[in-house]
C-alpha cells in the first residue's frame, strides 16, 4: 500500500463525487426527511404537556414542580437534552454515516460490474490500496455529509447544551469518525464479497433499519425490552450516539468515565472491523 496509490484512487472518487453532487444529495435525503418530518412530527414533549385549562387549576408551585420533574425525566432519557428534536438530530448524524458507508459499498459493486475493478486488479497496485482508497473515500464523504446534516439541524432547531465549545463539537465528530471507519471498512468488505448490485441492495435494505432501530438513534434504549437492549449493546451506533449526546448536551457536566468508556468501545469496534474488513476484502479481490 503506497501513499501515491491511495492518493490517486481516492482522488478519483472525490472527483466523481464533486461532478455528481446529486449522489451526495440523494444519500442525505432520507436522514433529512427523518429529521424534518419525524423529528418535528414526533413531538414527545408535546405528549406530556398539561393542557392550559388543567394547568390553571393547579397551584403554581405544583405546576412548576411538575414541569421541573418532566424536564429532568427527559434530560435523563435523552442524554441531557430536553427536546426530542435535538435528540433525534444527533442520532441522524450516526445514520448519515451508516447510509454513506453502505452507499460507498455500492460504488465498489459498480466498479466490478463495469470492469473498472478488473483493470485495477490487472495493474501492479497493492490490493490493500484498492480497499483502502474506498474506505478513505467513504470516511471523507460520510464526514462531509455529517457536517452538512449538522448545520441543517442547527438551522432547524438543534439546541446544544451549556458549556458547548468547538472542542466538544470536534470531540463529538471524533466519535462519529470512529463509527465511520468501522462501518466503512465492514461495508466495503461486504460489497467486495457480494459481487452483484442486487445482493448489495438487498443487504443494504436488510441492515439499515434494524441497525437504526436497535440502537439509541431514535429512542432511548433504557425503555426498550431487554432483548432489544441486548442487541443495541452490540451496535456501534449506540456508543457513537451516547458519546455525541454527552458532548452536545452535557458539555458542562461531562462524566469522563462514561465518555472514555464509549470512546474505548468505539476504538475497539474501529480496530476490529477495520482488520476483519481488510482481510475479507483483500481476500475477496482474489479469484
Amino acid at each position: 500500500m503506497t501513499f501515491i496509490e491511495l492518493y490517486a484512487l481516492t482522488l478519483r472518487e472525490l472527483r466523481k463525487l464533486v461532478r455528481s453532487p446529486f449522489l451526495l444529495f440523494m444519500t442525505m435525503v432520507q436522514p433529512l426527511l427523518w429529521l424534518g418530518l419525524f423529528g418535528k412530527a414526533f413531538n414527545l414533549n408535546g405528549l406530556v404537556q398539561i393542557p392550559p385549562d388543567l394547568l390553571s387549576q393547579l397551584p403554581p408551585a405544583l405546576s412548576s414542580q411538575i414541569g421541573k420533574m418532566f424536564n429532568e425525566m427527559f434530560a435523563q432519557l435523552f442524554g441531557g437534552t430536553t427536546d426530542y428534536f435535538s435528540y433525534l438530530a444527533s442520532g441522524m448524524l450516526a445514520v448519515i454515516i451508516l447510509f454513506t458507508s453502505m452507499q460507498s459499498g455500492m460504488g465498489i459493486v459498480w466498479d466490478r460490474r463495469f470492469g473498472f475493478l478488473d483493470k485495477l486488479l490487472a495493474a501492479p497496485v497493492s490490493r490493500a490500496s484498492i480497499v483502502g482508497a474506498k474506505v478513505i473515500y467513504s470516511v471523507l464523504r460520510g464526514l462531509l455529509q455529517a457536517i452538512l446534516v449538522f448545520l441543517i439541524a442547527l438551522a432547524l432547531g438543534l439546541t446544544l447544551g451549556p458549556g458547548t465549545t468547538l472542542v466538544t463539537i470536534l470531540a463529538a465528530f471524533a466519535a462519529l469518525l470512529l463509527l465511520n471507519v468501522s462501518l466503512s471498512s465492514i461495508f466495503a468488505a461486504i460489497a467486495i464479497k457480494v459481487k452483484s448490485w442486487e445482493t448489495q441492495m438487498a443487504v443494504m435494505n436488510l441492515l439499515n433499519l434494524p441497525l437504526m432501530f436497535a440502537s439509541n438513534t431514535l429512542f432511548p434504549i433504557e425503555r426498550m425490552p431487554d432483548w432489544l437492549q441486548a442487541a443495541a449493546k452490540f451496535n456501534p451506533l449506540t456508543y457513537a450516539n451516547d458519546a455525541m449526546r454527552q458532548l452536545f448536551f452535557r458539555a458542562d457536566s461531562l462524566d469522563l468515565q462514561v465518555l472514555s468508556q464509549d470512546f474505548a468501545i468505539l476504538v475497539s469496534f474501529a480496530v476490529v472491523f477495520t482488520l476483519v474488513g481488510f482481510v475479507v476484502a483483500v481476500k475477496g479481490l482474489k479469484k
Partner: peptide, 17 residues
C-alpha cells in the same frame, strides 16, 4: 466516465507507480 481522458490516463499512470 466522470473523469476526463487525461485524468483517466493520470490515474492509470499512478497505478503503475
Amino acid at each position: 466516465e466522470d473523469l476526463t481522458g487525461r485524468e483517466n490516463m493520470w490515474l492509470q499512470s499512478r497505478l503503475y507507480g
